[in-house]
Design a binder for these strands. Structure first.
Lengths: 239, 239
DNA sequence: ACAAAAGTGTTCGGGATACACCCATGC
DNA sequence: GCATGGGTGTATCCCGAACACTTTTGT
């Protein structure tokens, strides 16, 4: 199939009806967090609105490209693997009056009906110091147990992302990106416990993950801890 | 929250950028099928185009509502449970020249970039004689192993629906709607084999499904078969 | 009697669960 | 020497896989 098989795409312009929203998970050895942003407002306007990083898609980019671009624009994060998990299309999802005024400050058609495609991603919190871009006034981590009221239906989107994360994690399809490069088995267990939200038996857990060959021991141990130093591991190649 | 909390929705008008497509599965005791349609064209135009039932969404309906409505308009099927499984947003997905002419016959903005939300559903083939509506010239079942070339990216959408169906079925989240009201264990096994695409052991299969309590024996047996008549079962309540 | 599908039990291996004590280090 | 988390093995149960013969009906 060649370029001649396609009619010309429209020019580089925003689609006012389709957006993407990104639920970015981070893990800091004790709790799961999601990345939230506050949008810049006009000078002097002190009302704040917290939201997931998200925005309209361009007419000539795919949804996956839009998610990567939006995440980069709002948080400076680049090269993150984002996975689509579901579409949200309630006709009133962006029509609550509590959001209108705020929305008007950065959308040309604030009352347009917008469906949004939810994406989730993982990053190592230690590798990333949230940094606001020109489009966001603040970017920060929030523990998933204390998410504030968010814009639109972003609380619902976050909840569903957590559910999908749990399901994918149990199928070993995702989640290991949250670990530091070198980690101990206790840290790994803590990640499992945070995501699955329950305690696991230490001996059984170790037997299981060691048999799976997903992790490889390093010729290295922890240092500077005030107890028996732990063996360090890394993720196996090929995953 | 009252009606005053929402700004007024736009009038009843189509959103030219968002559509839904429905992958409807049927089962006839030996193979899985999907429901396909051919759109009506002008009199005398013999070129045909086969597609999944799907169309643009209205500005004031949810995606779920749109999927139900579109399915009803194109196939007369009503009251079917449809499950969203993913969004498709390649900017060129409706821009192949092979589709343009055909698309022009029923879309006002045939060259608009459209993202679509895929839904899947199950029905008992025995309960449904496909019936073309005023919008479709033909509605028919097609074995999933011999799907013809479809419009746009509908082949890809169908493939992904089958994958999701398999995954959901293995988690017992979906699929039993495909069975007739009364069925034998062999029919149930055949459904499993068609969906999972592999043979199962009869004795192990029976042990497993009987233990799960998802089905209940009826005080009834097959009649008129030229072999030992089988016990009939129905799905358990609450299921 | 024959054809056709229904129906039925046992064995084996692997994975999940439950559970308690000694070890290496820093202070 | 003590506080702190690191590290280890065994017994049990349940589930999934493999496997072959008898039973009931219609013709």
């Amino acid at each position: 199939m060649t370029a001649d098989d396609y009619i010309q795409p429209v020019l580089h312009t925003l689609n006012p009806h389709v957006s993407v929203d990104c639920v970015v998970f981070g893990f800091d050895r004790s709790a799961l967090h999601v990345l939230l942003i506050e949008r810049k407002r006009e000078q002097g306007d002190l009302r704040i609105k917290t939201a997931l990083p998200g925005d309209l898609v361009w007419e000539d980019e795919s949804l996956d490209e839009a998610a990567s671009r939006v995440l980069k624009e709002l948080t400076s994060l680049e090269g993150i693997f984002l996975k689509q998990f579901r579409a949200f299309g309630d006709p009133n999802r962006v029509r609550d009056v509590k959001d209108l005024d705020w929305l008007s400050s950065f959308r040309e058609q604030p009352q347009a009906r917008v469906i949004t495609i939810g994406y989730y991603a993982f990053i190592r919190m230690s590798d990333f110091e949230p940094e606001a871009s020109s489009f966001a006034s603040r970017v920060f981590w929030q523990d998933i147990h204390s998410i504030p009221n968010l814009a639109f239906d972003h609380n619902q989107i976050t909840e569903e992302a957590i559910e999908v994360l749990r399901a994918d994690f149990e199928n070993r399809k995702a989640g290991f990106e949250l670990l530091p490069e070198k980690f101990t088995l206790s840290q790994l267990q803590s990640l499992y416990e945070c995501i699955l939200d329950r305690k696991l038996d230490k001996r059984n857990f170790r037997k299981k993950v060691l048999k799976e060959n997903l992790i490889t021991p390093l010729p290295e141990k922890q240092t500077g801890v005030l107890h028996k130093p732990a063996q360090l591991f890394e993720l196996s190649q090929h995953g």
